[in-house]
Computed example of a mutant assay.
Amino acid sequence: MSLILTYILADDDEIYREYTLQQLNSVPGLQCLSVCENALITREQLQHHQPDLLVLDVEMPDLTGIQLAKSIKQLPFTIFITSHPNYAADAFELDAVDYLVKPVQTERLLRAIDKVRVLAGIKANTSAAEAFQQKDEESFFIKDKNAFLRIAYTDVLYAESLGDFVNIFLQNGEKKIALVSMKNLEQQLPQQIFIRISRTHLINRQKVTAVENDFVHIGKMQLPIGKTYAETIINSIVGNQAIKRFI
């Protein structure tokens, strides 16, 4: 039996609101709890309902979608929609599952909902105790479907926060999802190997290929350094290993 996902839709633009609602109504396994025309109404509805998913417009009067998300202590899985791609960084700092640009293509919306289904399925079928287990000084285990998958520290490039989950990106190009918060992951991994560079990302120090004031490079991947982390990242990663002009 497939998992039914409940959702709340919020958008102040009536045309886009109706358009998105029609798209969502055509997707099997979704149940609408409320359709809201501004963030304040949405906040009130979130206090009365506990949806699995929040489909949230960014640009709304009085209170933006970003501001609303920051005001909610326990945010459901969230898909942001917007007319302006430059808000993406702010959205992902809030552990958004996805970020869609209007007019949202149906196939793109379906991909975002599929991500939510995967996360909801993991959450429903995995206990916190078995989701992540540190094994030894070289590896850890995560629950992957019906098996426990062993991952060596040396195979991890970086981890990305998704609220109660993390995406773990591996050296072979694969991505694994674990039901553990970034905070708990950081506490369980060895600090001499892994370091937090933002609210969203934790990286393997040994995989860093370059460091700038605002970004860390891991191969071709460029990850932003959070403002509150910036002062310590270069010293922590580079330290005294840089070749000096004079000694």
Rank of each mutant, 00 (worst) to 15 (best):
S2I: 08
T6Q: 14
Y7Q: 06
I8G: 12
D11G: 02
D12N: 02
E14N: 04
E14T: 13
E18V: 00
T20H: 13
Q23L: 10
L24G: 04
P28F: 03
L33M: 08
N38L: 02
L40T: 14
L40M: 10
I41H: 01
T42F: 00
R43W: 00
H49Q: 04
L54F: 01
E59Q: 15
M60P: 01
P61Y: 00
P61M: 00
P61N: 04
P61S: 05
I66K: 09
Q74C: 02
I79P: 01
H84F: 05
H84T: 11
Y87F: 15
Y87S: 07
A88Q: 01
A91K: 10
F92E: 05
L94K: 02
V104A: 08
T106H: 14
L110K: 09
A112K: 10
D114T: 15
R117N: 11
V118G: 14
V118D: 06
K123Q: 15
A129G: 05
A131V: 11
F132N: 03
Q134V: 09
E138R: 11
S139P: 09
F140Y: 08
F141V: 02
K143E: 11
A147V: 13
A147R: 15
I151Q: 02
A152L: 15
L157D: 15
S161G: 13
G163F: 02
D164K: 07
F165V: 03
N167T: 08
I168L: 14
I168D: 02
Q171D: 15
I177R: 06
L179K: 15
K183H: 10
Q188T: 02
L189P: 02
I197W: 13
R199E: 05
T200I: 00
L202G: 07
N204K: 06
Q206I: 00
K207F: 00
V208W: 00
V211G: 01
E212Y: 07
D214M: 13
V216F: 07
M221S: 11
L223A: 03
K227E: 15
K227C: 06
A230V: 14
A230P: 06
I233N: 08
I237L: 09
I237K: 06
N240H: 11
Q241M: 05
I243T: 15
R245N: 15
I247V: 14
I247S: 10
I247W: 07
